[in-house]
Nucleic acid binder design. Sequence first.
RNA 1: GCGGGUGUAGCUUAGUGGUAAAGCUCCAGCCUUCCAAGCUGGCUAUGAGGGUUCGAUUCCCUUCACCCGCUCCA
Length: 514
Amino acid sequence: MSQSAPATIPNTPPVKDMKDIVALCKRRGFIFQASDIYGGINGFWDYGPLGTELKNNIRDLWWNAMVKCPPIGPDGNPVRIVGLDSAIIQNPEVWVASGHVGGFADPMTDCRETKKRYRADHLVVFIAKDGSLPWLAVQAGDDQLDLLAARIKKFAKGKAVTDYDATPFDKIALADIPNIVAPEASKAASLTEPKAFNLLFETHTGPIQSDDNKAYLRGETAQGIFINYKNIIDSSRVRVPFGIAQIGKAFRNEVNPRNFIFRSREFEQMEMEWFCHPDDADMWFDFWMEERKKWWLSIGVGGDDIIFRKHEADELVFYSKKTFDVEYRFPFTSPGFGELEGIAYRTNYDLGQHEKFSKVKMEYMDPMDNTKRYVPHVIEPAAGLTRGVLAVLCEAYTIDPNRPAGMYMNFHPNVAPIKAAILPLTEKDGQPEIAQKLYMDLRQDFMVELDVKQNIGKRYARQDEIGTPFCFTVDTETATDNCVTVRHRNTMKQERVAISNVKTYLRENMAKMA
RNA sequence: GCGGGUGUAGCUUAGUGGUAAAGCUCCAGCCUUCCAAGCUGGCUAUGAGGGUUCGAUUCCCUUCACCCGCUCCA
């Protein structure tokens, strides 16, 4: 029970507190700290009964919108997307080709004095030509000579920029590091030896560990798609443009897991790679941007707390020509936003890399014109499933001081873990038997719960707390009129429905927001 | 990885160098009631490890987890 419902100021929505959301997740079985009874493990989370339902619902809605029932393309026909479930461990060359082994393993150096951390390859060390100390480190960039000039003023009056030679920090011998003054430090010898930050999890295939059988847990599901591109082209009668979709776990050794399940070391992704002709890439980029907006709205993540934002040129990673973020205002990012999905125009970078490293041709031959050959370009809508779960949880959490728990979960019915509860008003007069019969029928089609214990108010309250949109209550009149009462979660309003219509009623109300 | 904070039952809190307290939840029973009603009974806790001590939940050390800030974030 929440004891900390904040005082409400008129016309100001009450502030959702992450602590309350995390507490609810544990209390009601959405999400637990992984290895809880052993004191937990940093960066990992377990999904309980309701969290699993919620996550599966979001996952299935994505799969449905992508693979089973993909959107109508610009030509009026549905686009073609096929599914894939690739291995978590692949040949380690995959991750060399993708850039993760190099890019995810940047050596970092810490400044003991200022507590700043720098990428070793982003620091330039200037060494005086006359051999005098100290050496001056600055952050690499267009302005590095200006930065150097400022440091010279402070540490080597009378010298000029031209009296120094530049050396990348990562080329400096370990023994010479104490000669260096860090970029914002006041004296030398504050930089630590560079430490490798390898964000890919390493493992070994086979029972004996050696460098020869080192392998990586995948850092993203996307590479599994790229390395199967050719298999799918050759086996599935797909033609460009088409997509390959995959949902699954990915692993990153995050430096600092934070914010509940937002940044964890094991997480789940929903990624689709859309292969198209380079001339059409911009059109498809806009197409998927719109489709992805619609999808997030369809699972109840909407309103002022979601934004769709194009990256500025200086934010783009080097292989991407355009990136578009779907971001949610989480309680811990507010008033800022945190990323839910990135839609990236990745050019033909990934297929090109795998062509180069595997020596397998990735060229596509236009079936209508054999003279047209090209490596397809890729638009990638890559969403975080577990981040989606968190956004849905935060969005649904609704403070309501009039309810026993002080809140309820306003899930869109299509993501709600339990769609309906069947409740006999009392435990006598044959009501449990009627309820049981209705439950046995409904459970064929819906995740429903039968609850006969305790008074009806407690049972409604419990269902509100886990976000069950509908309760069907069997009462004394049910035996004679064959109707039950539908009680709505958000409004607490009730209406009478014939037992024979309950299934239809549920189906019709599942698609719309309560 | 750095700095700061926090760890007592499922939740919210109390307390003490000497038998760890309560409310709510939960479970069982009574009651049979449309919004956590009432009555009875019950389960469950000092994050982990070490040290000091006759005795540690309390003091000390280490460690783990979580929160905030920094850093990082293909």
